[in-house]
Simulated assay, not measured.
Amino acid sequence: MKATLNRLFEHETLSREEAREMLLSISRGAHNHIQIAAFVTVFNMRPVSLSELQGFRDAMLELCVPLDLEGRETMDIVGTGGDGKNTFNVSTLSAVVLAGAGYLVTKHGSYGVSSSVGSSDVLLSLGYEFTNDQDTLRRQLDDAGICFLHAPLFHPAMKEVVPVRKQLGMKTFFNMLGPLVNPVQPQDQLFGTFSLELSRMYQYIMQQSGRRFAIVYALDGYDEISLTGAFKWRTPDQEKLLEPEDIGRPKLTQADLHGGDTAEEAATIFRNVLNNEGTPAQFAVVTANAGMAIHSMKPEQSIEDCLAEAEESLRSGRAKAALEKLLK
């Protein structure tokens, strides 16, 4: 580790294989927490390179607990976190709305590190029990249309990193990795990224995968379609800049998206939205993200029709029913 750190402090970058080997050695407990903290912090002082991100991803996928869906094709909608905006759980709510609209969702997530409440925090507060039991997860998919892959259960090799990330309390390259290392590697994914450069790297990595995807980055820094301004939309074959009005949505403010400071507050917002008792802004942003996720799967269908599917899932109560089935 010392030699690697010295190289990194001299502004050198790691090759894809070197990055993979370093994460594998961390997983084996070969380095202490101070060394891990130093290593992780380097990439907050300069951008992670494409080769490093690919190597870290290779190691994470190599080490993860696999999940066999027996041919089921699924979707994930997930943000990197790390945008520092402390929004409510937009991607997790959008995932439930997708399930209510009839799509199978394998949502991958974890506890909040750089934000107050992550997807795991809010689901735990709602009463969901984490599991990596394959039969249970497949049954949840069939009954509720959604299952949740709690990252620590599927990436146990990264247990050495968990306390370090918690104590640092800031975004790290693990935020960048999270959406890319869903153990299922679903057929379709909508990614939210906290920087324009990261959205470009995601596009390159996902183009190599041969799977369908879309990547969003709000130009004012959100890792989701925030409706607070313009957002970049990338797919395997196109890239465009969209404004909220381009998808029939009002422009929102940061205050409209506040997520509360505790898991209990976040869970209250979550239930309010699914009960159609949320604010118009919450309804607008959740259906925008779920609708654009549908559009990424069905690009031949108009954005207007895709958003209408998401709205119907929420208004009809089917999204709420999907969550209730999941919690059972």
Rank of each mutant, 00 (worst) to 15 (best):
T136A: 14
D68Q: 14
S316Y: 04
G248K: 10
H150K: 05
Q189T: 08
A310M: 03
M170Q: 09
L24E: 12
D83G: 12
D246F: 08
L126V: 11
Y204R: 07
K159P: 05
E265S: 06
D133G: 13
A218V: 08
G109H: 01
L24F: 03
P66R: 11
P244E: 13
L104Y: 06
A308V: 06
L149I: 07
Y103D: 06
E129C: 10
L149D: 07
A284N: 01
N44Q: 15
T4A: 11
V285H: 06
V40F: 12
F88Q: 14
A151H: 05
K107R: 08
Q54H: 08
L274N: 00
R165Q: 14
A319D: 07
F191Y: 10
K251M: 14
V40D: 13
R16V: 12
I247N: 10
G317F: 04
V285T: 08
M292G: 02
I303V: 15
P152H: 07
R20E: 15
L123G: 01
A214D: 09
V184F: 02
G112T: 00
G79A: 11
V164H: 01
L307Q: 06
Q203E: 10
A263S: 12
L190S: 01
P186R: 00
E17M: 07
R16T: 14
P152I: 06
S119V: 00
G248H: 11
A30P: 05
